[in-house]
Design a protein around this nucleic acid. Sequence first.
DNA 1: CTGAAAGCGCTTACAG
DNA 2: CTGAAAGCGCTTACAG
Lengths: 336, 336
Amino acid sequence: MRRQRSTIRDVARRAGVSVTTVSHTFSGNGVVNPATQARVRAAATALGYHPDVVASGLRRSRLGVIGLVLRPAVGVEPQHIQDVDYFPRFAGAAALTSLGQGYALMLVADPAVPHAPTTAWACDGIIVTDPVDRDPLIAALRAGGMPYTLVGADPADPDDPHVIDIATALITDRVLDHLAASGATRIALVVGTDAIEWNEATVRRYRERTPPAAQHVRHVPERSEHEEGAVAADELLALPEPPDGVYCLTSDHARALVDRLVERGVRVPEDVRVVCGSDADSLRSVAPAITAVDLQPQALGRQAAAALLTQLEPDLALAVPPPEHGALIVRTSTGG
Amino acid sequence: MRRQRSTIRDVARRAGVSVTTVSHTFSGNGVVNPATQARVRAAATALGYHPDVVASGLRRSRLGVIGLVLRPAVGVEPQHIQDVDYFPRFAGAAALTSLGQGYALMLVADPAVPHAPTTAWACDGIIVTDPVDRDPLIAALRAGGMPYTLVGADPADPDDPHVIDIATALITDRVLDHLAASGATRIALVVGTDAIEWNEATVRRYRERTPPAAQHVRHVPERSEHEEGAVAADELLALPEPPDGVYCLTSDHARALVDRLVERGVRVPEDVRVVCGSDADSLRSVAPAITAVDLQPQALGRQAAAALLTQLEPDLALAVPPPEHGALIVRTSTGG
DNA sequence: CTGAAAGCGCTTACAG
DNA sequence: CTGAAAGCGCTTACAG
């Protein structure tokens, strides 16, 4: 299956030098007479030679590859993940930042899941988005001595220094303030069930800020049918004192929730104001359009890649602007 | 920089066996007594051992990595490429298809550009989107014996068997038919300058179908300022017989073009009908919303990955549904 | 400035 | 069923 290519040996033979000289010529290490270099390069060109990155990676312990584990991607149907706006944008920005520093960006399967292809270990460092509570992957990365950067913290280890802040508490404050300013007095929270910072820290902050009697938290699995959002809407309306504001983290469920509210004659935003925690195409084009948090996936992707690259090569001194956390895109669902 | 991990030797020593036995245990090759296997696995676990994919890749000539070259990405500012909807969706779908077969998807820089990191060669095969005329990258891939799949053909080599069809002529027909059905009688074409199939085959088909006197083709560089679309609009209006229909391939320029038309008092779609060749967020949310071709990036991404995987492993027999080429999303700009 | 040689961590005939 | 040994293509002290 491998392309049979010419090797450093072939080039050395053709140029009449040793493999050392060929290696030096291409790596820039050592000193090689310019005339000799020219002979070597000519031979290489004639043979269509490229240094084998894999062999070189084996010797130098540096591949020039950054791995990206997109947590929810594993085992999810393609149509699911790609409807989500967040991940493609995050990955795109991380890829371009990496390429700019001479690194490729490799999308890998979670190496901690059973039977995962071990390719995940063929990189110089790994970005994980998002780590879960007591994340076995992080433990494995540490055990293997693999450099990593996390987007959002493992809830069980908030002080890991290799975390890109996703500012969940700050964002929660902004959303709850905005809902209140739009006239909401009883705000319900609809969150996912993945044990990630985004879910857990949102709930924590919500409980800190909301009088116990007014608290209502509904959990909806991230990868459930969209209709679960509608079911959540029904339940909220059935409460003794239904909420007049809802903060729903995921976009699919927010959409189904609003659809159901409208279907049942509830006016949005007059009767119930709704904010979604993650902006997406689909929130813009529905009626009423839904106010959402701009999570700034591209800024986060750039940040994460820069942080990991700096870990790998401390001299890089990459300057990337931090994301502007908590920016709200106000739409009809909160009177915008 | 490399994580110092335990090696197959360490495991062999601890388990009291040879490295051969350890290798056989993990690779599934050869036959190993179950009891011995258990000892080996126990030792491996205790040491936190993972087979080194790079070393194994070097020996076996198989890495489990598919490369993806996104042509326009090179040298482009991050904010540019990520505004484009096409590439993230394509890459996402290709990644998931690959992961499903145990391959990682690596985003690599164009290995044909000078000083490109050679990482691009650290994969088992490469997907190129989109090849340019007389593409030096394809020549390099062939010379290196690297399996590849192209999305769209090299205009100079339409018969390469490793091409995923992007059906440019068919799409052009659909668009021109739709514009005519919406009332357009003189249709201008606004295309990019990259020497890719999409641009060239669109022009060719347009010229085949349009009476010479009614032809008007305007080239706008893909990576020019958005305002170039406005300039194109001005030029079209300045023609002796201005068009009453425009087919503009790229979304940024289509948007600027429509904005300028409206600004100058031209009614869209009553006076001029406009179709964009590539759907994007931005076309949906403007007024008037712009009719566009759904290029089906996800379907193409799946197709391309499946084709390459099948080349690498003929036994795979991956069944992926082909994209439904030429689907139009009709919006206000053509009376939808 | 150039080269012979060891070794990165694995796989794979081959011999026992 | 198990092991000793060669070798994948490169890099890097080290000696000349």
